[in-house]
Simulated scan of single mutants.
Amino acid sequence: MLVPVIAGVDGSAESLAAAEWAAHEAVRRDRPLRLVHAWNWHPRQEDGEMVTAAQRHLARRFLRQAEDRIRRICPEVGIEDEQVEGPATAALLKAAEHADLLVLGSRGLTGFTGLLVGSVALGVVARATRPVVLVRAGEEACDEHLLAGDGSASTRTGYRDVVLGVDLDDPCDEVIEFAFEEARLRRARLKVVHAWHQPSPIGLGPGDINLVEGPQRAEEWLGFLTAVLQVWREKYPGVEVAETVTEGRAQSVLVRAACGASLLVVGRRITERPAGPRTGPVAHAAIHHVGCPVAVVPHV
């Protein structure tokens, strides 16, 4: 049995956009789509059964709404649905363990609204052991594609770039492979971005690049990036790759690079910290401030 692409559904505009994106992704991956709605069991005995019945009815309505939308725009995908009990974050994390990919809606974009990504989405991204894609409300299939010759939106044109953020101090195979596969599925160009900054003289170590001129330093980083990607170019010969090294903070560089992309791919290290799991500064900035869908790929 094929492992499904799973989309969390809660009736919001964001979750409907996520379900639609997940449907197209399931078709690209030749996977079934599973829609999941999580609701909390009501602990009060006197009205627990009534509340449970109401929640099940609401869940069924949300799932049917998503199914109807998907069947209209993506009739070729196989759909199944599931209602699960428990706090939404925990329920979705459990569902993600059996997913090829988990897709969730994400609120907010820039400035103060960037704080509205949502506690459930943030909680899942920070703890998931499988890749999670966050999708904004209003995302449509044509947004992943290049404009037509007359400047209009179209789903018949090629896909926009897939953008991958790479940390050359610790390049991760899982993240790089995910991005190459997404580019292959779309027949899109993969734009690989590394952000670097001038080190202070005090911070330089024996193995650090210690060139005086910025252009020469950038050339060195580009050489490192090319070397890291060589094995993946050989594994994915059909994927066109554009390599970019830019001086600046990784968060800002990636947000700019993702403008006009079909998908941004970033990594998140799986660590157990005293304060609990975290998304990391780069993933945090991406999911708060990037307009296109963002894939967060966990790695050790």
Rank of each mutant, 00 (worst) to 15 (best):
P281I: 00
A250V: 07
A250Q: 06
E243W: 10
R249A: 15
T271W: 09
P281M: 01
G280E: 07
G276V: 00
L264C: 05
V253H: 02
T271P: 00
E247I: 10
T246H: 11
L263E: 00
G260W: 08
H288Y: 07
A286W: 06
R268D: 07
A257I: 09
Q251Y: 09
P274G: 10
T244C: 14
Q251V: 13
L264K: 02
G280R: 02
V253F: 03
T279G: 08
A258V: 08
R249V: 13
V245R: 07
L254P: 01
H284V: 01
T279N: 10
S252P: 04
G276C: 01
L264F: 09
L254I: 11
V245W: 02
A250T: 08
R269K: 13
V282F: 01
A283L: 04
T246K: 14
G280I: 04
V255M: 12
T244P: 09
T246E: 14
V282S: 00
G248C: 10
I270T: 13
T271S: 14
V265L: 06
T246Q: 14
P281H: 04
A242K: 15
I270N: 12
S252W: 13
A258M: 10
G280Q: 03
A286P: 04
L263P: 00
G276T: 00
G260R: 08
I287T: 06
I287R: 03
R269N: 04
R268G: 05
R269W: 03
A286G: 07
E243P: 08
V245M: 09
R278N: 07
G267N: 06
C259R: 15
L264Y: 05
H288G: 04
S252Q: 14
I287H: 01
A286Q: 07
G260A: 12
C259S: 15
G267A: 03
V245I: 14
T271L: 14
G267P: 00
E272P: 06
T244M: 14
H288A: 09
A242C: 15
I287C: 03
S252M: 12
P277M: 05
H284W: 08
G267M: 03
A283P: 01
E247N: 11
S252E: 15
R269S: 03
G280L: 01
A283Q: 05
V253M: 06
P277A: 02
V255T: 13
R256M: 14
R249E: 13
V245G: 06
A275S: 14
E272T: 13
P274F: 09
S262F: 09
T279Y: 05
A286I: 08
H284K: 07
L263I: 03
A250I: 04
R278L: 11
R268Y: 08
G260F: 04
C259W: 15
Q251N: 12
C259H: 15
E272V: 12
